[in-house]
Design a protein around this nucleic acid. Structure first.
Lengths: 331, 331
DNA sequence: CTGAAAGCGCTTACAG
DNA sequence: CTGAAAGCGCTTACAG
């Protein structure tokens, strides 16, 4: 069943059928209805490939993230898919991995599929692998609009939507210091854009409060509860507060504190990042900085739709994080 | 730049170019190389839409799950995407939600996109909404191969890959009873296929060990740590073991036990399901039943590829779960 | 408001 | 091993 069949059955030309499919205003209501009825009766669906050939688009956006099994990315992807669908866009998912090659390949596959736009989730696309490694994004942005969620690069055609991670960490560390903490550890798992911002916030807060930035207090580690715990145990660092770039490491730290029989809240404060369910699994429950995936996703999609409609949109949009204070962790 | 340009530039016909694109064995190595060189030089990529029109496929599979932000589904989707890509298939993601309408819509959108196959993740597609609600899957299976991950329905063209949830729970409950537990609670959050199997395993184990199945010990609740904890607190149930259909509820139970100053392991055993990172966040760490997403995803993709290649494949494939015993929970 | 016709860029059966 | 030609099923500028 194709457009010719429908045309024949409804006694019009294929041009007219095409117009009613695309809801063209130039068709009379009467013929519109006539054709619709036939299409419904025979359960006709236009062939996407043919439409694609004609229109050079099938309303698809590429969603790329290093790994959807990561809680943060999964939740972003979920919101994005939902929001995009509202506007009739389907989502092709690519888990690119964290390596440069994987990222380049994912972007290439998507471009070859003639997607209408691309949304990259997580700040691992903003050049954490070196200096010139965003060339592939620049190239991609020449072809389709590119949205970066939680990363920032100043490239025409790349729209960046992010939360203010610098400020979130800066403020938190200031609060910790005001509450009397002096030996504050920063745990992180990557050198991505957002992590770098968090690190800067951490360092600046220390400096602005007259504390020294100590190298051994900046700990790079796997983002994994048990590994984080054990690494801290091995290092035997002496600290009275922890802030981590993701919850899993923070929970690991919390467990370590437990292990050495210190009291969370009394002796040590622990703050996580991303406000995942992990925060309420541990004891005591853990404060965390919420990175607002839902809001970001919404802004990302709205902006993208505007861009696709030819409207102008700001190249960088930053919203504040939210500090989620759990009763049991006080400062 | 299209196939005509390449043909002209390499001095052959478009038929030949098409053949080298498709790596047809009928082309001489010499012309193959000649054409390849031109394609590479001009960075030519065949137009997917035109290919789609000609081949009636663009090597895409639809991935549908109720909600990717669920840990279990996210991890399955991640593995599926990765495995499918190995075979050159791209993945269109659809988060259908848990309602019937959403599921039907997701499947329809995918079918309209002329996907080559469909993989449904989670057992919510196996008819948890009523009796006749799998008609849309039957219809879909007429058009493309359908794979159900962790669900089972006996429908031609629907291939079901699942873990033996019944046995996993049955065995666990038997072990609990042998260890002296008598008041075993079962927590669950839905009436999906797999949950129903788990519930059956729970009940049969009780019966086979001469215990009574008590209705108040089967607790339907939201799959959420704090809500689970609070609901149990409100119910004031007296129990000495808990098994849940997902980790979050189990952790909630564990926290409740903590709250009433009972000892996990001494007084109460708690076992979760899906072996997520939540299990190691709580204290003490929690045992859980691993539902083998990675293995399932691999089998799912392998089977699908076979089906697409016209080979025959078993309609139902079931593998055992793995019990993950954490040191601190003993029985 | 409607139709005839060209065009989108491939694939492939057929002939050689 | 290679090419000419038809076909895949749409969209749309043009003419009326």
């Amino acid at each position: 069943m194709n457009i010719y069949d429908i045309a024949k059955l409804s006694g019009v030309s294929i041009a007219t059928v095409s117009r009613v499919i695309n809801n063209s205003p130039k068709v009379s209501e009467k013929t519109k209805k006539k054709v619709w009825d036939v299409m419904n009766e025979y359960d006709y669906t236009p062939n996407v490939f043919a439409r694609g050939l004609g229109l050079n688009s099938v309303k698809t956006v590429g969603l790329v993230c290093p790994d959807v099994s990561d809680r943060y990315m999964a939740s972003a992807i979920a919101y994005l898919e939902k929001n995009l669908r509202k506007y009739g866009y389907d989502s092709i998912l690519m888990c690119s991995g964290f390596d440069y090659e994987g990222k380049v390949e994912a972007v290439k596959i998507l471009l070859d599929r003639r997607i209408d736009a691309m949304i990259l989730v997580g700040s691992h696309y903003a050049g954490d692998c070196g200096q010139n490694d965003i060339q592939y994004l620049k190239d991609a942005a020449q072809k389709v609009p590119v949205v970066l969620m939680n990363g920032y690069i100043r490239v025409p055609g790349v729209y960046c939507i992010l939360t203010d991670n610098y400020k979130a960490v800066y403020d938190t560390v200031c609060n910790l210091i005001e509450a009397g903490r002096k030996k504050i550890v920063f745990l992180y798992d990557a050198n991505s854009y957002s992590t770098t911002k968090k690190l800067e916030g951490y360092q600046d807060a220390l400096i602005d409060n007259g504390l020294k930035v100590q190298e051994e207090y900046k700990v790079l580690m796997p983002n994994n509860v048990l590994k984080a715990r054990d690494l801290l145990a091995k290092k035997k660092l002496d600290f009275d507060a922890v802030i981590a770039s993701d919850d899993a490491m923070a929970v690991g730290a919390l467990k370590y504190v437990h292990q050495i029989n210190k009291s969370i809240s009394e002796d040590v404060n622990v703050v996580g990042f991303n406000n995942s369910e992990l925060c309420v699994c541990c004891y005591p429950e853990m404060s965390s900085i919420d990175s607002q995936e839902e809001e970001l996703s919404e802004i990302a999609v709205d902006s993208l739709i505007k861009v696709l409609a030819g409207k102008s949109v700001r190249q960088k949009m930053e919203i504040p994080c939210k500090f989620i204070k759990r009763n049991t962790t006080q400062f």
